[in-house]
Design a protein around this nucleic acid. Structure first.
Lengths: 84, 84
DNA sequence: CCGCTTTATACGCGAACGCGCATATTTTGG
DNA sequence: CCAAAATATGCGCGTTCGCGTATAAAGCGG
């Protein structure tokens, strides 16, 4: 599995969705764990730019994920992918 | 420089602050670049959980940074650090 | 093909955003 | 030590959060 790079909200949401499914959870059950409504998880995953950081961090922690911040690597596939 | 791991808003804010200073920018000038008030950048850096994702992504892109999402590694120094 | 599950949206609500603007407080160099 | 710069914080405003709740629209299994 290659790196999960996110340069915008949509990419981030997509990563989270993959991770959640990989963990065998629904938006509803994930939401239960972290006290977020299913609808809120939905907004996060669809890449709403206005969701709050706390929502993201809660989801990450529930999925046992962490963030790494690093300098942008060269034009990566991640950009092109997301261009369409 | 070791990995910049963030498991909560505060860690993320701290990382951003370091990166901004490293880039030789003030909150104000950074804000100008991405059309955010200096006060908003301040809230982001101080780890306000309720800042929006768009604010984070804007800052990241202005600093030429990207996010990587990955499974949590073992109990790392990053946690303990942030415990105080 | 057809239910059932899952996901996307919508309403009203209280709270907080980020805005422009202004200012207290802290940090910094000389 | 002190002025200038940088950062944190406050107000009113319009907007949008996430909430509870509900429902429409996809997805999926049999």
């Amino acid at each position: 599995m290659t790196d999960q790079i996110a340069r915008n909200e949509k990419q981030l949401g997509a990563i989270l969705r993959r991770a959640r499914k990989h963990a065998g959870l629904t938006q509803g059950t994930l939401g239960d764990h972290i006290h977020l409504r299913q609808g809120t998880v939905s907004r996060l995953e669809t890449g709403e730019p206005a969701v709050q950081l706390r929502t993201l961090m809660a989801a990450l922690s529930a999925l046992d994920l962490e963030l790494v911040v690093r300098p942008r690597s060269k034009a990566s596939a991640a950009d092109i992918e997301d261009m369409f």
